[in-house]
């Protein structure tokens, strides 16, 4: 697996004129994720990828990178153009600790380098998304120190509208108070159970498509409840409303 930081080449950026949406997934692959959780995560990611791939708009606009943390921090998938035939390998869990902070710092660095590339080439872009998914709390050497640094860096970018943060906790062993501090804009971290990975990634997929194709504003991304602000009406009332307005 190639590890890359900041490999800027036209090939990686493609010649598309689309406004890019850089998304960096920062995924927990520590020991606790092994077994069913990592399978569900993989399934979710795969369907996310295929939804991006099948849509002409998101395929050239979404710019995706995956950083995993579990023992070490790895760049599982570097940024690059998604092609119609591209598949991503499945992620496997490790047996070790959870360096969340380090993972996030790496993700920020990658996003920053990517943005520098856009600016250099003159590619327009949306503000990047950072999607952090963890099922635990920071572990390992200097982990708390790094986590504090990560929180500071992330919230600073977020407050300047330079980053959209999805802080997602899986299961019941998450340090939610710490995870919450990753975003000042999101009232509570997104809390899901393993079985809801599919739904989560479907939401991320449709949200990215809404941003790219219908200009959905970033604020909407902090409002997970897709509340259908309307009253459901039956046929009679529906046609009456139309008639009354004629």
């Amino acid at each position: 697996m190639a590890k890359k930081v900041g490999n800027i080449s036209e090939k990686d950026f493609g010649s598309s004129t689309k406004r890019r949406l850089p998304i960096c997934f920062c995924l927990d692959v520590s020991g606790s994720m092994s077994g069913n959780p990592i399978n569900e995560l993989n399934d979710g990611l795969q369907s996310f990828f295929s939804s991006i791939r099948e849509n002409d708009e998101t395929r050239s606009a979404a710019d995706i990178c995956i950083v995993t943390f579990g023992g070490s921090v790895d760049i599982f998938l570097p940024f690059g153009k998604i092609t119609k035939s591209q598949t991503i390998p499945r992620i496997s869990a490790t047996t070790s600790l959870t360096p969340i902070g380090e993972g996030i710092l790496t993700a920020l660095e990658l996003l920053n380098v990517r943005k520098t590339g856009y600016k250099e080439l003159g590619i327009k872009y949306y503000q990047p998304w950072l999607v952090v998914i963890t099922d635990g709390a920071p572990q390992g050497e200097n982990s708390m120190e790094n986590m504090e640094k990560a929180i500071q860096a992330v919230t600073e970018l977020e407050s300047k509208d330079r980053l959209v943060v999805f802080n997602i906790g899986v299961g019941n062993n998450v340090d939610f108070s710490l995870l919450k501090r990753l975003s000042d804009k999101r009232a509570e971290p997104i809390s899901i159970q393993t079985a809801q990975f599919g739904k989560l990634f479907a939401f991320l997929g449709s949200s990215s498509s809404s941003v790219v194709t219908s200009g959905m504003k970033d604020d909407a991304l902090y409002d997970l409840e897709q509340h259908n602000e309307g009253t459901s009406v039956a046929m009679d009332d529906f046609f009456r409303t139309i008639e009354e307005c004629k």
Binding site: K3, K4, V73
Partner: peptide, 16 residues
């Protein structure tokens, strides 16, 4: 701050 990412960063320079 992240010893490990420093490691792969330089490694990656060669990759590039």
């Amino acid at each position: 701050s992240t010893g490990k990412s420093q490691g792969f960063a330089s490694n990656n320079g060669m990759q590039n």
